[in-house]
Each structure stands twice: as C-alpha cells, then as structure tokens.
C-alpha cells in the first residue's frame, strides 16, 4: 500500500491537467495528523494532498451525488466500487461522467483519534472482495479472493437463533438509544432520495417524537429501502454516534436476498435488482407458509 498515494496523485494530476474531470475526490491526512479525511481536489497543483493508507474509512461515492452533471474522479476501495455500480444501475450516475480510480484493498483499520488503529474494521475481517469490481485505473496488484460467508453472517445467525422476545428486547434497547440524527442516511451512498419518507409531513410516516417505536420504524424502513441494494460498506454503523449495530439489519437482508434471489448488489451495473423483477413461478411463503 506504500506506493498507492503516489499512483493516485499521478492519475489525479493527469486527469485534472487534461481537463477530463474538474474534481478528484480522494483522501488526505486529517486534522489529527494521522487519520484520513475526504479531500476534494480541483487543481492539478494540489494533488500532493492526496494520500492513501489504512485509515481511509470513508465511502467517497456518497459525495458523487452532489456532483451530478460534472465530470468527477473518485478514489474507491472495492466495497465503495460496488456503490459506483449500484448508482450506475439505478441511473444516478452517467458512466462517462465518473472516472473510477479503484484500489486493491488489504483492509482498513479501526479509527482512533490521533493514533493509528490496531484492529481491522469488522467489515474488513470478513471481506470477500479485495479487488474493485469496476475501475478505470487500478492501483495495486490484484490479490486472491477468500470468500468467508459463514463468518460474514455469524452475527446475524447469533441473533436469529434467539427467541422473538429476546430479539425484540435487543432491538428495543438499541432503538431507545437512537437520537435520529440521520447520520446513517446522510453517509449512505444508496440513500439518495431528494425527499426521504422520514421527512415527509403529509402523510407523516414518522412522527417527530424520538422514542423507541418511531426509531424502530426508522431503522426498519431504512434497512428495507436498502434491501438488495446495500453494498456492505458499513458506513451507517461506523458513523452512528450511539453505536447502534445498524448494519446487522442490512446483513440480514443481504443474506436473504442472496439466498432467495441469488443476487449480490454492486457486482455489476447490468443485473436487474431483485425487487424490480420477478419470477412468475415463485412462491415465497404465500398461504401462511413461513419457509421462504
């Protein structure tokens, strides 16, 4: 990963100097001198700011939605590259207006203020995709993939084994802590509706009162709106100031979508998403059946 920054800078310099893009979204060293933060570089002479190391947690694809109609280059890890595919599939991006600088990623570390993190992020420990599925420029040598689906869904299975009462108690305890700051929504590359259901006043789906039932409704619908779409960057959970395990809900749906529809979001930008298509012969648990 040592020469990544150099290569990213070279690509960025070339793109900006040639006028192919008017902004490069990448990472720079943040104000604590150690951890990375997102950087927006508009001039070729500023590319020296760009860097990459194992503190680059952010999913920068989120920022592309503010740059509609303007050619932009973005630095993506493999999980973030899946978000590019998602947005292309859903016609939120035009392929010719985005230049993808894809990185081969060995894993990102937990953040800690002012110091290097020790442990790998949870998502990186069970990552099954180290090479970006879409890129214009590849940085790094592709590495062998080691799929680990059992580990990936272990936390989901652990909770699913419990009784409904225990699961309800678990989620209620989480929902009581939620302050509905919507950071999970703001950081999500898949949450791009101009008017979120949570902000609607008529009908008012979600009251302004911040309590467990309303928060539960928010968590449920947020997760459902990402069913078959969540690319597993886990940014929602990382930015949650209350430490609510939001991505557990996303993993649950991801597993179900993979089982039932053999679909993994963000692998390419062509396969129709599972909730926008159907198979006339299927029975997913109608007539009161519960096995689906």
């Amino acid at each position: 990963m040592k020469d990544y920054a150099e290569k990213i800078q070279a690509h960025a310099r070339e793109l900006l100097a040639a006028g192919k893009v008017d902004c490069v979204i990448g990472y720079e060293t943040g104000s604590d001198g150690v951890n990375a933060r997102p950087a927006f570089v508009y001039r070729a002479e500023d590319v020296g700011r760009l860097t990459f190391d194992d503190t680059c947690t952010h999913d920068l694809v989120t920022y592309l939605r503010n740059r509609k109609g303007k050619a932009t280059a973005v630095v993506v890890k493999p999980c973030d590259a899946r978000a590019v595919n998602l947005l292309l599939l859903e016609h939120q991006l035009q392929r010719e207006q985005v230049v993808v600088i894809g990185l081969v990623c060995p894993g990102i570390k937990e953040r800690a203020w002012g110091q290097k993190g020790e442990a790998l992020l949870g998502k990186c420990q069970v990552c099954a995709m180290h090479n970006p599925p879409i890129y214009d420029f590849l940085v790094g040598q592709p590495i062998a993939e080691e799929p680990s689906p059992d580990q990936r869904y272990a936390p989901v299975a652990a909770l699913a084994e419990k009784s409904p009462e225990e699961r309800l108690a678990f989620w209620q305890a989480q929902q009581e802590r939620c302050i509905r700051c919507y950071a999970c929504r703001q950081t999500c590359p898949g949450c791009y509706c101009t008017e979120c259901f949570a902000d609607r006043l008529d009908p008012q789906w979600l009251g302004i009162r911040v309590d467990a039932p309303a928060n539960g409704m928010w968590h449920t619908i947020r997760a459902f709106h990402l069913a078959g779409r969540c690319i597993g960057c886990d940014e929602c959970q990382r930015v949650c100031i209350m430490g609510i395990p939001l991505s557990l809900l996303n993993r649950k749906l991801e597993q179900k979508v993979d089982d039932a529809f053999k679909f993994r979001p963000g692998q390419d930008a062509q396969t129709p998403p599972p909730l926008a298509t159907f198979n006339p012969g299927e029975n997913l648990g109608v007539d009161g059946g519960h096995g689906c």
């Binding site: 409904p164 678990f170 997760a223 179900k256 909730l275 198979n279 299927e282 997913l284 519960h290 689906c292």
Partner: peptide, 22 residues
C-alpha cells in the same frame, strides 16, 4: 409478483427485529 417479493423480505426483516412471523 412484486408484492410477494417485498412481503417476503419485509417479513424476514420484521421477524429478525422481534415480530413473530405468524
């Protein structure tokens, strides 16, 4: 058909959050 797919996923999600599938 679309309803069925959404229903199947939603039931799974709500069951995971503690509402019995019955």
């Amino acid at each position: 058909y679309y309803a069925q797919r959404r229903y199947a996923l939603m039931r799974e999600l709500l069951a995971f959050m503690g509402i019995e599938p019955e």
